[in-house]
Design a binder for these strands. Structure first.
Lengths: 220, 220
DNA sequence: GATCGTCTCCCCCGGCCGGGGGAGGCCCGT
DNA sequence: ACGGGCCTCCCCCGGCCGGGGGAGACGATC
């Protein structure tokens, strides 16, 4: 069955764009739209979407309040994907703390948008979407810390995964980690893949960065 | 004759604030504004300001690159006053090394801003205001792992290599770094290899760890 | 007992990574 | 004029990495 999505944005143009991008996917279906946060709750109850793509800055009720309201009042709430224009948007971190599952830049490429929707639908959190990385590179290092901490908290690593991440953050290769933990390299690869998925990291380097930025490991 | 100033910042609000503060002075005149680094060079050629108040973090072309570009391509270049939000901004030092004449915190009081503009216009350099001196002192001790710091000092990275390492420490792949620096991937690979060799790192992950441990990049 | 989560291991495979070696252009200092 | 960094780009190639998919074993919880 397809992933169902509810679009919430005050700009019709943005909604139309998201709809076009997402509807092009056979496994994604846009089941509704709302122009402000106040209309979200009844629509969520009625449509029961898997994912809500929610703008942060909206009239009446902003994305943060709407996120809190949905998570507080709806049983088996949908995943919330926060949509924003700026990567260094204070409201985005507020929304993540309010319980949103990931965020997405409006200027992201279509493939990245689709990827983000699928990921949150599967229950993953999104720390390092490619679009954010790129923008963070353009603006400097303003995007990181708080989002990193939030993502690390939300990651819910198992003990073994945390152990593997600590060794990754000391520069060990998969083979070396396997030797240290006295398991097979394939096992280590499984754990590493799980860590990457949970942190929304693309490779071990990004995972280590997230570990430092979140305070999971400390320098010195 | 008055001191003429060109404002370069991607945030209209910041430009408006600087303009208000500076225009209040009879001997200072704001002669132009730009929203990104790419627009700076033609404006400098056209307006020939005495001082350019340049943001470090900007889209398209950041303050460092813009500073280099201006100093390299303009005859009798203006004084460059780097404007930043954060005191511990790695980019600021980079900009100073690129030839900027001083820097200025956005949160500075109006009188300090005016003072800074007048000073650089007179040819003084503003490299170490109190806030930065303090931060440099903190870097001196809190910058973690002494061995890592020693290794980083011994490494003697070139400017380009340091730039590449910073981007590596943000999780960018070689391809992404190449796009950002507008060079070929082979070039990036050369720089990365040089960084790894100089730091004694086996792979990019270890290099990023060294960057964090040495304080070359700081979490938060 | 059945289900779930965790830890363990396996195969295939494409791709990025990093090593080695080379080379041309540029600016700078001797 | 000649070197010496530095930045740029090129080739070949082995290997580690990460994705996708699958599966068995164990304990806990319902």
């Amino acid at each position: 069955m397809p992933v169902t999505v509810l679009l919430v944005d005050d700009e019709p143009l943005v909604r139309a764009g998201l709809r076009a991008v997402l509807e092009a996917q056979p496994d994604i279906e846009v089941v509704g739209e709302a122009a402000d946060g106040a209309a979200v709750i009844p629509l969520v109850r009625q449509l029961r979407p898997d994912v809500v793509a929610m703008d942060v800055r909206m009239p009446l009720l902003d994305g943060i309040e709407a996120t809190r309201a949905v998570l507080r009042t709806v049983d088996a709430p949908p995943k919330i994907l926060v949509v924003t224009t700026f990567e260094n948007d204070e409201y985005v971190y507020e929304a993540l703390r309010a319980g949103a599952d990931g965020f997405l830049l409006k200027r992201a490429r279509p493939a990245e948008i689709v990827h983000a929707v699928r990921l949150v639908a599967e229950g993953e959190s999104l720390l390092f979407p490619a679009s954010v990385r790129q923008l963070a590179a353009e603006y400097g290092r303003s995007g990181g810390n708080r989002a990193a901490r939030a993502a690390m908290d939300r990651a819910r690593l198992t003990e073994r995964e945390a152990e593997v991440l600590r060794l990754m953050a000391r520069g060990l290769s998969n083979t070396e980690i396997a030797a240290r933990l006295v398991v097979g390299t394939e096992t280590v690869k499984s754990h590493v893949s799980a860590v990457l998925a949970k942190l929304g990291a693309r490779d071990r380097t990004q995972a280590v960065i997230a570990a430092y930025e979140s305070g999971f490991v400390a320098p010195g």
